[in-house]
Design a protein around this nucleic acid. Structure first.
Lengths: 356, 356
DNA sequence: AGAGCTAATAAAAACGTTTTTATTTTTGTT
DNA sequence: AACAAAAATAAAAACGTTTTTATTAGCTCT
């Protein structure tokens, strides 16, 4: 009774042999038929496909993996929040993963996530994935100006897509945001608004995009014929705490900034926290332009001007590129650099205000 | 030269046969030695282990998987942000994944992530994982009051750990937050502060923890001998937009709330956004108590009273429990219900204020 | 009508393990 | 010293595929 039902339920899933016994064809023919090989006759194929559907046959992934050497996995490197701080950090990874997951939907690939703690750890993990062929492809972000992962992966011809570009002239699939342009545009807008002392709350200087932003920031001053306020560039992890502390420090300088450019939403919140505690009002006492990675700046009080980058879309592109790369496509053709959209929620100029 | 180096590099990684040829033992003995079987003699084991280390031998995961039927994967179900809105949603998943990833570190298990769109999708995905044995264990959250996944997994005796409990008296490994207690405590605190019209910005009512919170909310009124303001309970997705819209609607009622309890950080931000736009000040015109899932409430202006739940720790517990469950441990022993810590950043009472 | 093709299918080998079974070597006992 | 028992190792089978090689049947052509 319960016993019987149990064992009925337990019936193991059909293998290619079950299908062979059921149809009368050999396992070789069945494999070919289901893989779409042209050598098998049409009626045969139809019969096999019908039987497969009837029995609910699904090729065993482990068997395929062993035979083909493929893993049917796409690996993603994800930064692990340092246990100490529990700071709001790397939140956007949910969106990236979500995008990648959507791109992989319908393909044979599964998404596997590998946490890492620091640059060295990330490299080791990447190398391990390649050496043990733990995945058929790799996605990662946090690209450094000179990123050893990229060298290693290009060298070993392992399919990968990076979110961000390194500064070496290598050919590899990538998705990136035009950070130089965005920083330039934000800074130029503030300069045009009358600001001269502008702060840049930036990421760690080892990161490639941190340099890009400094480049854009500097170019805006250059083109205006002004000296860039490079002393107001702060680099660090992108936690809320970092944003708050940096703003506190910069605003306490003898010649403080009148405007701040923040490179992500988390730091922005920190900056706003500092402004609130100092009773400085955005759009009145000080201007802020931010990067809107998780679409939340609209809810800040007051709403602030941001660059909107639909990060989930970037994730989707990453997944799509990886699939194409794993299918053998030329990496030179798999490159996208998107310009975020500027959403002006504030005038962002000194206006009638004193420049203090 | 380059050629030679290339092909040297390309040398395929050693298999158990390589090791057999190298040591003179049979592959059977080698397998046993490395798996720690007691039948192999100590000197033999030592020699084999030494050789394995020397050659950098790593058992091929695909071969193991095929033979043992195991996958060495732990699957996690992750909600996919709906493409339409790009709303800030499910951010805490980064932390959960981070925690799980840490727990899995050092084990033989890899983390694989499966996106799903809605309840039905989540169930189908779970079933597929079980049917195709695409993983050796499963972790998921968003437990419904009557969650079909739990029934299915318990029934098929598949190792899993849920973040949250369903309302059926089943035995299964789980990690949860004492939501009833937290809602009770928050509500009681506000009642003690003089509030009578209290809103609860809650999750979708199908979710088990949403019911728990309503229970706690109601109990606080009961114990104070008051009628609960159940008309002020809003249920929906936990996006920032939902928080904002709910607050807007509730505050526009003829008999509006004087305090709000928000069930996560994202909705809190939305609520604060509404308060800002209505020029109502937290701690002056209205009180807010929130759940601090990603540790960011400290940076709100003003900082608000929250329940702090270190979500990454929960993630770590989830991973740890899953490992133990996959190792065969009794699920009855794998249960944790943690009480979040209340961090009072505001007095949260009407004080000398009018009850309007 | 039989050789030589081609098309279709079947058989066999291989991927790298683990586990069961078989064989050899060592130890202990008389 | 012979033999049984125990210990150690080797051989073989199996997991479920895909791919290479072999076989068979059906044609075409002289």
């Amino acid at each position: 009774m319960a016993e019987t039902e149990r064992s009925e339920r337990r019936e193991l899933s059909p293998t290619i042999k079950t299908l062979a016994a059921h149809t009368g064809y050999s396992i070789a023919t069945i494999s070919k038929a289901l893989r779409g090989s042209p050598v098998v006759a049409q009626p045969t194929r139809d019969a096999i496909v019908a039987a497969a559907r009837e029995l609910g046959y699904q090729a065993n992934a482990r068997g395929m993996a062993l035979r083909t050497g493929k893993t049917y996995r796409a690996a993603v490197l994800m930064p692990i929040t340092s246990a100490a701080g529990y700071e709001w950090d790397g939140v956007e990874y949910t969106q990236i993963l979500s995008g990648i997951s959507q791109a992989l939907e319908g393909s044979d690939y599964q998404l596997s996530v590998h946490g890492f703690r620091d640059f060295g750890d990330a490299f080791d993990t990447a190398r391990r994935i390649v050496d043990q062929s733990a995945a058929d492809g790799l996605i990662f972000s946090g690209v450094q100006a000179d990123d050893p992962r990229i060298d290693m992966l290009v060298e070993s011809d392992f399919p990968f897509v990076s979110l961000g570009r390194c500064r070496k002239p290598l050919i590899y699939a990538h998705v990136d945001v035009d950070n130089e342009w965005a920083a330039f545009t934000a800074t130029a807008r503030l300069i045009a608004g009358g600001h001269r002392r502008i702060a840049l709350i930036n990421a760690d200087r080892r990161l490639s995009y941190a340099l890009d932003r400094i480049d854009g920031f500097s170019r805006a001053f250059d083109e205006a014929g002004l000296a860039a306020s490079t002393d107001l560039v702060a680099g660090g992890d992108l936690s809320t705490r970092f944003g708050r502390d940096s703003a506190l420090r910069l605003l306490g300088l003898p010649s403080p900034p009148t405007a701040l450019v923040c490179v992500n939403e988390s730091t922005t919140l920190g900056v706003l926290s500092t402004l609130g505690s100092l009773d400085r009002r955005v759009g009145v006492d000080v201007d802020v332009i931010a990067y809107d990675d998780i679409n939340v700046s609209a809810y800040f009080t007051p709403p602030i001007t941001t660059f909107y980058q639909p990060i989930e879309l970037l994730g989707r592109k990453l997944g799509e590129f990886l699939l194409r790369r794993m299918a053998g496509e030329d990496p030179a053709k798999l490159a996208m650099v998107s310009r975020p959209e500027l959403i002006g929620r504030q005038p962002d100029n000194l206006g009638g205000r004193s420049r203090r």
